[in-house]
Design a protein around this nucleic acid. Structure first.
Lengths: 337, 337
DNA sequence: TGAAAAATTGAAAACGGTTTGGCTGAAAAA
DNA sequence: TTTTTCAGCCAAACCGTTTTCAATTTTTCA
């Protein structure tokens, strides 16, 4: 059913019908009600592509999905979805091309030029992130999930990674730990730098020096968590505590400790960062896992919200949110032996 | 830059330019090359919304995301992305509304009517799935990931859940286990029924009867895996083996067994279904986990491929793929004590 | 060489809405 | 009563492409 046809059925002009449905003020309430009722009854809904062409709005927020297909991703998107479900906005997932085939910048450029999205969410930015510079230059609204030091105005939402890890590390030091290992995320991203910095600052403020031999970084997998932890623990002077970047890394650390007959919370302490997954909870691990916690899903919801604000005209300069991170102590941390 | 303007720059009509860029045969190779070069040089790319309006194609495949935000989801999408990256097709994630607010059927109906997608992927269908009936009735191309018994022609891709679980269960029985527990996925979905059926058939073919007291179902979370396993193991006549629906459930089972001082692979055997996640591998668990295995990511890739075939005219009736599932035996299974 | 066929190209009509600017008639103001 | 104002509605232009149909040029072939 097309607008023209529908308008005829209702006995009004396409103009009035369009206005009635889009909530413009210059149409009387009685008319609006009549149109709305008829639309439902006759099953009319505007052709979205025509609307998009005419209005220039794409009705979608773009999210570029890395090749790793991170498990965080689904949670973040679920959160976005929660906020967007009531809006006329969908989430467009853009696959990241094979890095050999196409430059990542090219992908963003094409995405902007194709006008498929009204805004883009940029994940895990680097301190000097080219994507941010590009999007700003192209005039595409965007929100950074994470932080960047780049000298370009942009909206962002981030959690206080530095503060969180600093607090976690300080706690371990307070418990008497002196050799603390750090399993960080992939090097390069700002969040990894912030965590690194928090780790160092905690040491510094207690007048001790972190051991670079005990600091590793890589993907958040059980596998890497295990490998790093295992190799650290097998050193002549092993760590008595771990700060792990994710729940998956923590699983690996637990496994490594067990495989060497060490008891977690007694022989080795562990604190990890928990993004709050419904299917794997820190509280349920054995022993329960002390964690710095911040809901990835909540971040997704809020990011979606902020993007909507951005699209309705709020200045990116006003949109800067730094979320505090909880530190929840459970059984995996204890005084050094 | 608009087509008209660009055409003028190249010294051709919009018609010819459009044809040249879309690869129509009635344009000479020299002209095509000239246009292609100029498009790159001048940075012209067609307004996607105009194209969509004119052609009636949306250029996107819809995936409805459940509220749970399953971790499987990201893997499946990453797989889809791998296939779609080279196409002019994106993935549209449609958030599932709050069930109180809107009927799921309404969501699908609106999605179809809004013409935002060219095809839809339906996940975890039920034997008699309303969504399938609706989409067929509305004439929207769709692919079912999973199977349904509904009497409506439709394309589908599924893994052999019944066969997998039957084989896994049979193996346990062959090892001497007689009391085997089953932690299935949420009741209602066909895959859960198929697994149930495989579980029963394995028993049947060995002339034994499964104990309904040892069969549970629910979300694939560590938490539920633990709770079910724990309650089963605390029964007066506990199971000596477990068949678990997912890696997360298996983590819970491991935890429950450990919490009761039972050694996995010796006191209790476990086989789980592994969807092959990059961040959590069965081989790395301690002890390594025996598993029925099928890559979720590969399924996503193939589903995307099949949807593209569907869109280029292949009949849904021809598209039925049943993937075999590997059974990989590791340390978590052993003879009954 | 000239007619017919084939290869190129272009003008203009869609696609299905939104929005500008104008029109109408009734209420308000003069 | 006449003029002004304004709520309510409409005609037509426009968004930026693709595609039909026709025109033109080039090639083929008798």
């Amino acid at each position: 059913m097309k607008l023209k046809e529908f308008a005829k059925q209702v006995g009004l002009s396409p103009t009035t019908v369009s206005r009635a449905l889009s909530g413009y003020p210059e149409v009387s309430e009685t008319t609006r009600a009549r149109v709305a009722e008829a639309a439902v009854r006759l099953g009319y809904s505007p052709n979205i592509n025509a609307v998009r062409l005419k209005t220039g709005r794409a009705g979608a927020i773009g999210v570029v999905m890395g090749r790793a297909g991170e498990f965080h991703f689904a949670e973040f998107m679920a959160g976005m979805a929660e906020r967007l479900v009531a809006e006329e906005t969908d989430i467009l997932v853009i696959p990241m091309a094979d890095p050999n085939q196409e430059d990542e910048m090219q992908l963003y450029r094409r995405l902007v030029e194709s006008r498929r999205v009204d805004a883009i969410i940029v994940h895990s930015p680097k301190p000097n992130d080219e994507r941010i510079a590009l999007l700003h230059e192209l005039g595409m609204p965007f929100l950074v999930h994470g932080r960047s030091a780049i000298d370009v105005p942009h909206a962002w939402l981030d959690i206080d990674n530095e503060g969180a890890i600093k607090r976690a590390t300080s706690h371990l030091i307070d418990l008497g730990h002196r050799r603390i290992a750090m399993i960080n995320g992939r090097a390069g991203a700002t969040y990894a730098l912030h965590r690194d910095s928090g780790f160092r600052k905690a040491h510094q403020s207690h007048g001790i020096e972190p051991d670079p031999q005990l600091m590793a970084s890589g993907n958040f997998t059980d596998e890497l968590g295990f490998r790093f932890a295992r190799s650290f623990l097998e050193q002549p002077n092993p760590p008595s505590a771990f700060v792990a970047g994710s729940m998956m890394s923590a699983l690996g650390v637990y496994r490594a400790a067990r495989s060497l007959g060490l008891q977690i919370g007694r022989d080795v302490s562990v604190i990890a960062h928990d993004d709050v997954f419904p299917y794997l909870t820190a509280d349920n691990m054995v022993p329960s896992l002390s964690a710095t916690r911040s809901s990835m899903r909540a971040a997704g919801t809020r990011c979606a919200d902020l993007v909507l604000q951005l699209l309705s005209g709020r200045s990116p300069l006003e949109i800067h949110e730094l979320w505090p991170v909880e530190l929840i102590l459970r059984e995996s941390t204890g005084p050094v032996r």
